[in-house]
Write a protein that binds this DNA or RNA. Sequence first.
DNA 1: TCTGCGATCTTGACACTGTCAATTTAACTC
DNA 2: GAGTTAAATTGACAGTGTCAAGATCGCAGA
Lengths: 210, 210
Amino acid sequence: MPPIKSVSLSKTPASKKRPHHHGDLRVALIDAGVELVNEHGADALSIRKVAAKAGVSHAAPAHHFASLANLRTAVIARAHLQFASQMREQIKLANKDDPRAIILAALKGYMDFAFENPSLFHLMFGGFEKFDDDEEFTRASDLSYGVLSEICAPLLPGKAGEEGNQILVWSIIHGYVGIMLNRNSDQYEDADPAVLLELIFPDLPLRDPA
Amino acid sequence: MPPIKSVSLSKTPASKKRPHHHGDLRVALIDAGVELVNEHGADALSIRKVAAKAGVSHAAPAHHFASLANLRTAVIARAHLQFASQMREQIKLANKDDPRAIILAALKGYMDFAFENPSLFHLMFGGFEKFDDDEEFTRASDLSYGVLSEICAPLLPGKAGEEGNQILVWSIIHGYVGIMLNRNSDQYEDADPAVLLELIFPDLPLRDPA
DNA sequence: TCTGCGATCTTGACACTGTCAATTTAACTC
DNA sequence: GAGTTAAATTGACAGTGTCAAGATCGCAGA
């Protein structure tokens, strides 16, 4: 009995194409890439391995990613989605009327992501070649930096202006996490963004809620 | 006329060995590695390329570095030497009696190194596999962190203790530089550690010089 | 001086990588 | 249903890390 020829249901949104025998190779490859990085480190990301993991030939990815660097960029973009969403989840748990609690919540989401996905984190911020002109990447990373500017909005602009606050908050958490990840000690549990932030902003200088 | 047989001057410090026809292959390989990273990025570091650059066969490095990761570690160790020395040079230029100036000088050395050697910087802190048990690496990176604890020593221990101050200062500069390097914009010149530090420590809480 | 001998380097091979070209296959349009 | 295009395959190439075997140098002991 020959396989039912899928009958071209054509109920798929016209923009989507279902090529060959694979459902959505591009996202499958990115999925495989994220897994690879998480399990075996950033160096383990390879075109041939994601192809094998997705069950296609070694040259199949070429049609979706022009080069290994492009694949990296796509994986990083995906990571940014999870990164931003993890921060937003923590923010949801916080008291909406307490800007200080919101900042701390976001930083907790930041640290959780970094400590739970150190390899992905390194891939994102470890200096690999990225394509800033890539639309997908830009959109994804903008989500992350959007969280930052949002939580910093209630802060009173300091000597360095609004952007100064953002850089300051981002620097401190980014640098702290980088240090903690770099000493490959395993006691991440002492990491507490609240303590850290209290050191920077003994009392957070909030805007007048007018 | 046969080549003069080098006469075994034996004036070299007895601990040094001059094998085969190459003077000091190990350091030559590290030199080549630093060059490669500086010129073509962290990914360009390869055993065969450093071998070629040093004029030896592709398998020669194996006797000095058990694996590529070991070569990386050695290059990173070398980078730490330069890193620490660049900070110390700036410190020398500062007023010895002004702890605040000393901190700012060190941070200037930090930023100078990072912006002048972004690829090396990424290699050092970008999450590549390192061998912390490597004696050479430990000694070199201790030099860097030694500078940090030294410049932070005059600081009054805060809520998080002495180590808290070190982590705080290190985080802020580390994170800030990481951000600046990550946005591949080329205007690093607005980066000013003095402004940054002033944001963190409006007035540096120094110990009583008793 | 000669003879080992051990460290160092070379040659050759292997599996693996990214990337390209040519080919086959599937899916969609007319 | 035929033809066209996108997608995936096969095959090849240069380059990589790493291992095994052999060659070569420099030095210690006779």
